[in-house]
Amino acid sequence: MSTPAINLTNLCQHYGVHRAVDHLTLTIPEGEIFGFLGHNGAGKTTTVHMLTTLTQPSGGQGQVFGFDLHDQAQDIRRLIGYVPENVRLYDNLTTKENLAFFAGLSGVEDIDSAIQSALAFLDIEHLANKKVGSFSKGMRQRVGLAQAILHQPKLLFLDEPASGLDPLGMKMLRELITKLNQEMGMTIFMNTHLISEIAKTCTSIGILSAGKLVFHGTIAEVNQRFAHEGAIEDLYVNVLQTQQKETV
């Protein structure tokens, strides 16, 4: 059995008395497109910050491809790519200069060729020599994706990737995510609060509420339980209502 992409046991993140992530236990196998669903403030971004080694967990255990979150951050960073919500780059630099910078940080050997491949993959070669400061949200999102895949990571984190995109932009993003998963073999971890995105893109989902994982399963399992078009929406409402009742 291969090492899971993500393996978490009772992972916690506390800020004083506030439990942003509360005993999260989750396993995501390699090759999945995992949708992490939850309200704003549910703890999705906090989880991603821990998984991308930006912050240290307050408690619990976690591994990314077998590397420990607490003390193997550098090994994890070599394997991941990250696109934050509202990605912004260095406005005064061109796309190519931005990408060359991130490729340099990632230890890419042939920087020019890596940039060329990423630009071609995302179909943004025409933006190569333009300063990113003048780009629209959608264009920035693509350059943001390019910087995250330059070093061909095994696991890609996307934090609210569809936020602020128009319908066409969302469609293109969906296609790109699928392409990254299928053609480049990347495992995708996607934070979102847009149920429609999950249904159209993901292979498995997790629902987070007040820092707690209240559901985890494959899309096939969801469709089995709620066999109609609004399956995930129904599941989402259902599990959250159940949890609220339990809390009361």
Binding site: H49, L54, R77, G81, L89
Partner: peptide
Amino acid sequence: RQTLALVLTRPV
């Protein structure tokens, strides 16, 4: 610009 997150998720 929130580029800090992009830099600090690299192997530096």
